[in-house]
Each structure stands twice: as structure tokens, then as C-alpha cells.
Nucleic acid binder design. Structure first.
Lengths: 337, 337
DNA sequence: TTGTAGGCGTTATCAA
DNA sequence: TTGATAACGCCTACAA
């Protein structure tokens, strides 16, 4: 491994001169610069990042935290897509990305801890927001710059990127109402995540604004537990008055719903219209019928999470938020009534 | 940031003593150890990784290379799944993972270069093998331990993890033949990747063994180009004698084929049976009909790529390979003839 | 069992 | 415009 010293020796100058050439310091003669650059080339020199970080206190690396376990995270195409955006933005700025892992909450926290405390990263991006997740306390405690994808509960001094989920759900419900639907069900998703809370909020608001009553009978709360979820879906569909449309907070769940509905003999969209979230590709296009879904632009979410974070790291701005627009992608799972 | 020195001062010992306690050196009295550990706890000490790597020459980090662009890579659920396996194994060994990015071949190589030459990583995993991809020359040139997911062309001295793709394709074709199919088409995939070359090999071998002729008319080479792909598929389906079954080298392509086939009025599996590769979930289950596909265990591929790599890094073994078994997952896209 | 001193590869400060 | 020198935080002979 060739070092700055060896270059210096070969060039007959001091190590500091070489260092200055590397940083393109203005007070080095062009002549020396040229000479030294040539030697660096010849000797195939590359600066040692470790040594550099040791003095500069910066690693040019950001840590990424996925929901534990990474296992589940990757199952949902949302996260790879977010990662893509992060990757791209980081790359643009010459930053590297380090994936934090951990199958349990505890491992997750340990991983974060060692990442930050060991000075492996300059900042951290958390790809989700979950209420009461201890990771956020940890994050504040260890005082590392971070940004969140999702809406945190307490906003002061926190960077985050999010969709306006209230609005998105509102628009979706309005979309259904405009097409003549009056009895609209909801599959909510875990209320531990602000995403789902917000979508619920938008749903309620839209019904209210249009003078439609909220009916708990056609609101399903269960989620990730496949089993309970299916049972609740069935219950909803068989309720005293079957909904003519359902808003679902995640495509993957919507597919389950479609399956359940078909099992019970309902036709989609004739008997039941469905609008869902995430516009998961190619799933939404391939399902039958193709699913009308709300594009939330996970790539942009990731991309902007990096931008915001780096602005803070570079001291250019105070923490703030960035909202990514959403739009409904029309397919075949909704009919007019 | 609390350092070893501060701990030393507080404890009234020398920094080296503290360092020895950290590495649990056997020649430090239990008493001192206990005392110092307590102080470290109190002062919330955490060793600085950069400083440590600077002297130890190890980063406890492995770099991951996805096909450029990371963009496309994540579109195929195969890669997230591989990443999961890598992540898990790395975590088990206390290693971190650094994602290499780059939208172009050139960027990719630069990224790898700075990763390795900057001493950011102890080793590298390449998640694919592409014939003549300059990344591999680069890899050899910079002399970094690495392992590959996929079968490299020259095997000597290279770590790799792979399925036996020849065998897998062979079994798939045999499976179709056993069910009465005699005219079996193939959608090959780019011959730049050994994966696809091998699957083609297995296909040919199976036909040969069973005394069936190879018919170029029902072998489609195009791939990633959506357009040309569809046209070729149509051509195959409309060939002088439509195949009763098709082997497809990637689920995502199989879905395209299904769509094209349906457009042309063919029923699946009644008119055309399909077997494909990757067992992409939940896609394979959700498609109609659900797709019979070959599980290649991407998680295991990733997991073992790490294991092999770390064995080499730790000097425990010579480079070698590891083969991951495959199996056909039976669904509804194949019928008896 | 512990301390001293030098070094890992860079950068930054202060002189020259 | 350049060179010494110290420092970043840690590790490891070599001494004691």
C-alpha cells in the first residue's frame, strides 16, 4: 500500500506538500503539483480513508436503518425502491452507504450504536417511522444527524421526508365517492406507524366532508398477521351491508383482499372496487384485475432523505421536512356505480 | 468523544493498559480489568473504528456490488433477497456491509476502486457474474478478497456460490417431458451471464437425453428489451408448431410471456404450460394462474457468499465454491398432456 | 502485571 | 511556496 510518504520521498518533497497537492491547495506551485500528480499516478497512489477520517472526523458515509428485521423489510418492494433513491443521492455527493442490520429491536439498536459511536458514519437515515420505537430515543441520545422517512410524532428539530398521507387518502376516498360509491371500507394497517394513522385520518375526513357516516363494521384494523387479517376481511365483506369499495393502505394487503373477495364469490371491480397504496410494480399491473393504486414515489423519498440529511451535516440548514407528492394511478380495480 | 486516554487518566493507568483491557488481554489483572471496565461504562466509552482500522488494517466491513445500475438491480426481487442473506451472515460475524453504487459501468468501477483502495472494506461480494464485465479484472488487479454469486468463467482461485443451473434447467425440462410435453420452448436470457448460459445448457441436455430435437424456432434469445422480447415471444408462439410448454429463465419474463400468450388467445396452462426460474414471491402466487417456478434460494446464495468470503479473509481456507440446491415449486401453470 | 514509545496515514499549524 | 512537527485514537513491541 503506497502512502503519502513514499510519494514524498520519490518526489523529493515533504509529506505535507503531497497532502496539499491532494487537496489542491492553492499555495503550491503548478509545477510541483504536476510533478507530484504524475508520481502519484505512476505509483498508483490512493488516499487511505481511515487515516483521513481520523483527522477530519468525517467518514463520508451514511448509515441506513431498515425496519428490523431487514428480513421483512425487503419483502416489501417499497424499501428496495427507497434504497435506490438513497443510493443515487449518496453517490451524487460522493457518500457511501452502510446498511445497518439486526433481526430484533435490540440488535438493531446495538448496530446503530456501534455505527455511530464507532464513528463509522456521519449521519443516519431511518427508512420508517414507528411510534415509540426506541431507535429514535437512541438516535437523539447519541446526537447524530439523522433524517426519517415518514412523519415523526414530535417534529421539532427533526429532518423528515414524507408524503402527505392524509391528503392522499382523502383524495383516494373522494375519487371513489365521485364514482358513485357511498359505502367505502378501509383496511387500516398498524396504528404504530404514522403512515397508517395519517391514511386513516384522510379517510375519515373525506367521509365526513361528504356527509358519509363512519362505520366501524367496515374498517379492518388487523394487518400483518395474515390469518387474523383474512378473517377480518371476510367479516368486513360479509357485514350487514357489503361495502362497494375498499381503500387499502398497502398493495400487498390489497392482493390478499382480492383473493379473499374472490373466494367469497365477489367480482372485482363489479361487486367491490379497490384502491390501494404504493403502486407496487410490477405487481399492480400483473394482478387481475390490475390494481388502481397510489404512487408515493419511494425513490424520491429516499433521495430527498439524503439531501436533507447532508444539508444538515454540512451545516447548511436547520432541520426541516420535505413533502413528496402522490398521485392515483388508474387501472381496473375501480368501477362506476 | 471520550477516548482511551481519558479513560486511562481517570483510572490512573496508562492508555496501553486500557487498550489491553479492551482486547481482553490475558496479562492484565482481573482487578484492573474490572475497575477499568466500570469506568468505561461510566464514561460511555466506545472505541473509534477508524483509529482501530488504521493500525489493524481491517475494517470489519464488506462491500457489496450490485449490477449497475443499482436501479435495475432492485427491480428484481432476487437482489433484495440476496442482500438479506448477506446482511444476516455479515451481522452474525460482526461485519458491516457497504453498498457500492454506480449507474454506469464506469461509475461502478470507480466506486469499487475507492472502496478497496481507500481501505474501506476487507472484502467484496459481487452479486452477479457477467462475462467480460471489467469489474472482475479490476477485482483481480486490486487484489482484494472477493466472492461471486454466480458461476465465473475461469474458476481457479475464485470464491463463488451458485446453483447448479444446468441441473436445475435439466430437471425442469424433464419435469415437462414427464408430463407429456414434447415440444418445449425456451426463453433464454442474455448469454452474457453464465446463469443463462447454464440454463440453456441444461435445457439442451434434457432434450437430447430424451431424444427430442432442438428447434431454434422456439428458442427466444432477446431479453431485457421489453419490445423486442414481446415480438420474439409472439413469433415463438406463432411458430409452425406452437410449443405446448415453455421454460423461462426468469419469472419476470414469464409474466410477460403469460400476457403475450393471453393476448394471442392462448390459455395457460391448457394451451401452453410454463415453468420459470426464481420463485419470485409473492408474484408467483398472485399471478393467474399461479406460476410453477424453480426456487433458487437467493437468501442462501447471499448468506454463503459471506461465509466463503470471510473464510478467505480470515485465512482459513483456499478459495472454493459452494452449490445451493434448487427445487421446483409446483403451482398451476403446468398441465398434463 | 503495567508503562513507555513509536507508528498506522493523514491533515493542520506554524515557521521558514 | 514549502517543510517540520504535532495530532487524530488506537495498538504493540519492548522495557520495567
Amino acid at each position: 500500500m503506497v502512502t503519502i510518504k513514499e510519494i514524498a520521498k520519490k518526489a523529493g518533497v515533504s509529506p505535507s506538500t503531497v497532502s496539499r497537492v491532494i487537496s489542491d491547495n492553492s499555495r503550491i506551485s503548478d509545477e510541483t503539483k504536476k510533478k507530484i500528480r504524475k508520481i502519484m499516478e505512476e505509483m498508483d497512489y490512493y488516499p487511505n480513508v481511515m487515516a483521513r477520517s481520523l483527522v477530519s472526523k468525517a467518514t463520508k458515509t451514511i448509515g441506513i436503518i431498515m425496519p428490523y428485521s431487514t428480513e421483512k423489510a425487503f419483502a416489501n418492494p417499497f424499501f428496495p425502491e427507497v434504497l435506490r433513491g438513497i443510493s443515487k443521492a449518496a453517490n451524487n455527493h460522493g457518500y457511501f452507504i452502510l446498511l445497518s442490520s439486526g433481526d430484533t429491536e435490540k440488535e438493531q439498536i446495538e448496530s446503530l450504536y456501534s455505527l455511530v459511536r464507532g464513528s463509522r458514519v456521519d449521519g443516519v437515515i431511518v427508512t420508517y417511522f414507528k411510534i415509540d420505537d426506541p431507535i429514535f430515543q437512541q438516535l437523539k441520545k447519541i446526537k447524530v444527524p439523522f433524517s426519517i422517512i415518514g412523519r415523526p410524532l414530535k417534529l421539532k428539530g427533526i429532518n423528515y421526508v414524507d408524503n402527505d398521507n392524509v391528503k392522499a387518502a382523502y383524495k383516494a376516498v373522494k375519487f371513489l365517492i365521485d364514482r358513485g360509491h357511498r359505502r367505502i371500507g378501509l383496511i387500516r394497517g398498524s396504528s404504530d406507524f404514522t403512515v397508517f394513522v395519517d391514511r386513516y385520518e384522510g379517510y375519515k375526513k373525506a367521509l365526513e366532508d361528504k356527509g358519509l357516516a363512519l362505520d366501524e363494521e367496515i374498517i379492518v384494523s388487523n394487518r400483518f398477521e395474515q390469518e387474523g387479517g383474512c378473517r377480518s376481511m371476510k367479516k368486513m365483506l360479509k357485514s350487514s351491508q357489503t361495502p362497494s369499495a375498499v381503500l387499502v393502505t398497502d398493495d400487498l394487503i390489497a392482493f390478499d383482499l382480492m383473493r379473499v373477495a374472490k373466494e367469497l364469490g365477489y367480482k372485482i371491480p363489479d361487486d367491490i372496487s379497490i384502491v390501494s397504496f404504493n403502486n407496487t410494480m410490477p405487481l399492480c399491473e400483473l394482478s387481475s384485475p390490475p390494481l388502481t393504486s397510489i404512487e408515493i414515489h419511494p425513490y424520491k423519498l429516499g433521495f430527498n432523505a439524503v439531501e436533507i440529511l447532508l444539508e444538515e451535516i454540512k451545516g447548511k440548514r436547520k432541520p426541516g421536512k420535505k413533502v413528496i407528492e402522490t398521485e392515483i394511478v388508474h387501472r381496473k380495480s375501480v368501477c362506476e356505480k
